[in-house]
Amino acid sequence: MKTVTTTISALPPRLDLPPDAGGGFLGAVRSEWTKLRTVASTWWTLAAATTLLLGGMAIAAVSTRSQHADGNPAAFTSSAPFITGEVMAYLVQWSIVILSVLMVTAEYQSGSIRNTLQWVPDRARMLLSKVAVLVPLLLVLGMVFGAVGLGIAILGLGEFGEAFTTDDAYNVVVGVALYLPMLGVFALGLAAALRGAAQTISIIFVVLLILPLMLPAIGLETVAAYLPGDAGVNLMRGTSHPIYPRPVGGLIVLAWSLTSLATGYLALRKRDT
């Protein structure tokens, strides 16, 4: 008894931390932000997105100018907002998909997901903390990319670009800023459900690009119109879809994102790691 008493008394006193000293939802958010900004893949994907934006705009401008330089009466021409939306939809968005997917799948690949779920055992809190980090980042990135892309398109197209209004320019920048966070949440939720980067990116590629191109060819234009890829393209172009107005397109993408996030949460609840 004397030995036990001595041992217990020799232990350091229990450290009672205040409720706001880490932990909770804000602690989980800080942890996710630290992970996101300290891994090399984040900076590589953002660099790739920037490169695709600049390269895509340059190609569109050079292609338009070269056609007009040859005096071709049927030369392609378009407006700067339209070109910005196209480059974002067919090039830049894939870097955003990869960034969002890797926030989940990289942890499964390295095995660090076990540590994450030990520190944040509440699956909803863990998943929402990733969303809370990803959405503001992509919102700001979308505004910057939309504005920079539009400016480059205006300079690149020059006198060969079609006229557009201030509202058109505003709609494109806002559309890109809204679409990228919703796309990120869509990819994040699907990654949480599937756990693997290859299968997640493959499915997203089919949903965003292949199906919107394939379904109209077999008479299913209406089905394609309600996919996130088709709705997202029109949202970023700043134009309404032939079937529904532009705000409805944003709601369609949002619905896909929330459904994907809910699916990822349910999958996380049903398995250990």
Rank of each mutant, 00 (worst) to 15 (best):
Trp43Asn: 08
His68Arg: 12
Val174Cys: 01
Phe82Gly: 01
Val104Lys: 06
Met236His: 05
Ala231Val: 04
Phe82Ala: 11
Ala197Val: 12
Ala198Trp: 04
Tyr170Leu: 14
Ser202Ala: 15
Ile83Ala: 14
Ala262Leu: 14
Arg14Thr: 13
Ala124His: 09
Arg237Tyr: 07
Leu54Val: 15
Asn115His: 09
Asp230Val: 01
Ala132Tyr: 07
Gly55Asp: 10
Val253Ile: 08
Asp16Tyr: 13
Gly27Lys: 10
Phe82Trp: 11
Gly219Asp: 06
Glu32Arg: 09
Gly55Ala: 14
Val206Pro: 03
Ser31Glu: 05
Val104Ile: 15
Ala89Asn: 14
His241Ile: 05
Ala132Trp: 09
Thr51Gln: 03
Ala10Leu: 11
Leu157Asp: 10
Asp230Glu: 13
Ala255Lys: 02
Gly142Glu: 06
Thr259Ala: 15
Leu138Cys: 00
Gly85Thr: 05
Gly56Lys: 11
Thr259Met: 13
Ile204Ala: 07
Asp167Trp: 11
Ile98Ala: 15
Ile243His: 09
Trp119Leu: 13
Gly161Tyr: 12
Ser9Gln: 12
Gly250Leu: 04
Val135Ala: 15
Phe82Lys: 09
Thr77Gln: 13
Thr273Glu: 08
Tyr179Leu: 01
Ile204Met: 12
Ala132Val: 07
Tyr265Lys: 08
Ser112Thr: 15
Leu127Trp: 02
Val223Glu: 04
Pro13Gln: 12
Gly232Met: 01
Leu178Pro: 02
Asn171Leu: 14
Leu15Lys: 05
Leu155Lys: 08
Trp256Phe: 09
Val104Leu: 11
Val176Tyr: 00
Leu235Trp: 01
His68Asn: 10
Tyr265Glu: 02
Val144Phe: 01
Asn72Trp: 11
Ser31Phe: 11
Ile83Asp: 01
Pro81Cys: 09
Val173Glu: 02
His241Lys: 07
Glu107Phe: 03
Asp16His: 14
Ser257Met: 07
Phe164Ala: 07
Gly24Ile: 07
Met103Cys: 04
Trp44Cys: 03
Leu155Met: 07
Ala80Val: 07
Trp94Pro: 01
Phe164Cys: 03
Thr42Cys: 09
Leu11Cys: 08
Gly111Met: 10
Thr5Ala: 11
Ile152Cys: 06
Val148Leu: 14
Ile252His: 06
Ser260Lys: 07
Val87Trp: 02
Gly264Trp: 00
Leu268Gly: 02
Ala61Lys: 07
Leu188Ala: 04
Ser63Ala: 15
Asp230Gly: 02
Leu155Trp: 12
Thr200Gly: 05
Val248Ser: 04
Gly151Pro: 11
Lys2Phe: 06
Pro81Trp: 00
Ala60Leu: 08
